[in-house]
């Protein structure tokens, strides 16, 4: 047994898991307020990362300015997607809504590969020190920043939903659209807002992941990896998304450890979450915190 490797991997798992949690939160936000499963979430990440990188390298902006510009861009992008593509499909069956986001994901992926190229590119160095030593563990500073950002985003979400007027409107809409509408909430605005927030936060997560690894279209795989996390937590629970994300992150790295130490299968860590996903769906279909559907005839 190689204990220090295990601890290192679990620490990585926690950090990556927090990022999964953030992306899962975006996913759940869209699902909860608009009943759309967004298969293009991964492409949102990649788009955010590419746009930020483009602002930095081609427009010669400092990182902070580029970051803010990216946020503005992602807001507009999220609203546009909702208005142009998802709004005509309100009330259509599940398969149509799933397929439209899948179509969107194919479209965006090809478009981004075309515009930004399909080779990986690195962010310019943002931090002075490459890695820091925290309690005997070697942690890259980008990882540390991603941890801080994840906690900040989660805290921001909590405050937004707890105290702001729009957060309240969104919770009301998620609870019951008709009642919310009759109380004077514009459901259209709430839908657009949900997509905008989700796009912004995905963009931020994309930038963070792009800084930790590098920016390429393969980042979009996170949009798929989020599914086990979301299902584990329950499709409509924001807390569940965070916890599910952390569990999947830990599990992935634990699987890598077991694989590397004992099994030597090669790629257990990419596939383990999906086995877990099937098992959860068989035992507890609505996840740890999801609302159980009660149907009446």
């Amino acid at each position: 047994m190689n204990w220090s490797l295990l601890v290192q991997l679990l620490a990585n798992g926690l950090i990556v898991g927090m990022l999964y949690g953030v992306v899962a939160m975006c996913f759940v936000l869209i699902y909860k307020s608009t009943q759309v499963v967004n298969f293009a979430q991964g492409e949102f990440l990649v788009l955010g990362a590419w746009v930020c990188l483009w602002f930095i390298t081609d427009m010669q902006m400092p990182f902070i300015v580029a970051f803010l510009f990216t946020l503005v861009f992602m807001t507009l992008f999220g609203i546009m997607i909702q208005v142009v593509i998802l709004r005509p499909l309100i009330g259509e069956p599940v398969v149509s809504v799933i397929m439209v986001t899948i179509g969107l994901s194919i479209f965006l992926q090809a478009l981004m590969n075309w515009i930004f190229g399909n080779s990986a590119e690195r962010f310019p160095q943002v931090f002075e020190t490459e890695s820091v030593n925290v309690a005997g563990l070697n942690v890259e500073s980008a990882y540390l920043m991603s941890l801080v950002m994840s906690v900040l985003i989660m805290g921001g979400f909590y405050l937004f939903f707890r105290f702001s007027k729009y957060g309240l409107a969104m919770r009301a809409t998620a609870f019951n659209q008709q009642t919310a509408q009759s109380l004077g909430i514009s459901v259209r605005q709430v839908f657009a807002l949900a997509w905008a927030i989700s796009a912004i936060v995905s963009g931020v997560a994309g930038i963070i992941i792009g800084m930790v690894n590098s920016v390429s279209s393969s980042l979009a795989i996170i949009g798929i990896k989020v599914f086990p996390a979301v299902i584990l937590g329950g499709l409509d629970s924001i807390v569940g998304a965070v916890i599910g994300g952390i569990i999947i992150g830990l599990l992935e790295n634990f699987a890598e450890f077991v694989d590397g130490q004992f099994l030597n299968w090669g790629n257990l860590f990419t596939i383990a979450p999906f086995y877990v996903l099937i098992i959860i769906l068989m035992i507890k279909p609505y996840g740890l915190f999801g609302t159980k559907d009660i149907e009446r005839i």
Binding site: E92, V100, G103, I106, F107, A110
Partner: peptide, 20 residues
């Protein structure tokens, strides 16, 4: 240079347009 990408994009776009 974008011909390959245009082919991929057309599949995505066809799905979206048909659904709408």
């Amino acid at each position: 240079s974008g011909q390959a990408y245009i082919k991929e994009m057309s599949v995505g776009a066809a799905i979206i347009l048909f659904l709408i």
